[in-house]
Design a protein around this nucleic acid. Structure first.
Lengths: 146, 146
DNA sequence: CCATAAGTCTATCGACTTGATAGGCTAAGT
DNA sequence: ACTTAGCCTATCAAGTCGATAGACTTATGG
C-alpha cells in the first residue's frame, strides 16, 4: 500500500498539472481543494521541489508550480521519490538495487524471479503514465456531470 | 516493499513445497536452512496454518506440511495473507476494497485509475505463479553449479 | 523600510508497525 | 512419565506514519 504521503503528493501534482500555466498555486489552496493537512503537504511539496519536480516562489503572489510540462512528469517518478523503489524486494529494484542479506543464491532465488516480473509490469505502467495523460482520462470520466 | 514476514513466509513455503511428500518438516530445520529467526518463523507458519495453507503435527516426528499440492498454492495468496492486499490504494483492491476517505469522486480519480491498472498487472502475475512453478524455474537456474 | 504574505526549517507528538526474543503451556508420540 | 515440538502470551527496541506547532527567511507592495 502507498502511504498517504505519496497519495497526497500525487493528488497535489495532478492539481498543479491541471492549473499549469496559471502562475504559482498556494499550498493552502492545494491543501483545501484536495483535503490534505496543510503542514503535511508543505513537507511533501518541499521534498518534490528538492527532487526537481517543482519550483516555488516566496512572498505575496507566491506558491508552487511544476518545473516541467505535465506530460514530462510520470507517476512512477513521483512515487519513487515519495515512497521509495517500486520493487517489492530490494534485489529486484532497478533504481535502488540492494542485495537481500538472508538470500543465499540470488541467481536461483524464486522469490526474486517473481518479483522481477512484477517490478517490470509495474514500472511499465507507472513510467508511461504522465500527469497529463491521467488528467485527460479523468476529464473523460466526468461525463455524468455534464 | 514486502516486509520480512512475507519474504520469510514465501521462502518457508517454497522449501515446504520442495520437500512435499516427505512428511512434516521441523520449524527449526526450516529456520536454519532459510536463515530465519526460529520464533519469528513459528508465528508466520501459524498464521499460514490458520489460513488453511499448512497442516501441523505436534510431538516427536511433528512439524509442518502443505495442506494442498504445491501447484495449487500461489504466491499471490501467500502475500495477501502475510502482507495484505496487493493493491497500492485501498480503493483499488479486489479482495479488500475500501473507499479512500479523502477522495471526493472515485469515478474521476486519476490516481485510482493508474492503481487499478497496476493491481491488475500484479495479480495477473502473482496469482498465476505457484510454488511448484517457481521451484521448477529455480532448478533450471542452478545449471552453473552442475 | 516596514508590514505582510507565503514558503522553509526544526522539532515534537502519539500511535502504530516491524522484527525479534523469552517463557510457559499443551498435545502427541515412545 | 518423559520428551519433543508446536502453540500462546507478553514484551521489547527501533523505526515509520501522519500530523501539528512555532520560529525563520524571503519577497512583494505600499
Amino acid at each position: 500500500m502507498l502511504t498517504k504521503k505519496s497519495k497526497y503528493g500525487l493528488k497535489a501534482m495532478l492539481q498543479l498539472a491541471e492549473d499549469a500555466g496559471r502562475g504559482p498555486i498556494l499550498v493552502s489552496e492545494l491543501a483545501e481543494r484536495q483535503s490534505i493537512p496543510k503542514k503535511f503537504l508543505e513537507a511533501i511539496l518541499l521534498d518534490l521541489k528538492r527532487h526537481g519536480f517543482l519550483q516555488s516562489k516566496k512572498g505575496k503572489g507566491g506558491g508552487y508550480l511544476l518545473s516541467r510540462p505535465p506530460n514530462a512528469i510520470t507517476v512512477g517518478q513521483i512515487i519513487r521519490v515519495l515512497e521509495g523503489p517500486l520493487a517489492l524486494v530490494p534485489c529486484a529494484s532497478q533504481t535502488q538495487y540492494r542485495r537481500c542479506e538472508e538470500c543465499a543464491d540470488e541467481a536461483t532465488c524464486g522469490v526474486r524471479r517473481a518479483m522481477l516480473e512484477v517490478r517490470d509490469a509495474t514500472s511499465k505502467i507507472l513510467d508511461r503514465t504522465t500527469l497529463s495523460s491521467l488528467n485527460a482520462r479523468s476529464r473523460k470520466g466526468t461525463l455524468r456531470r455534464g
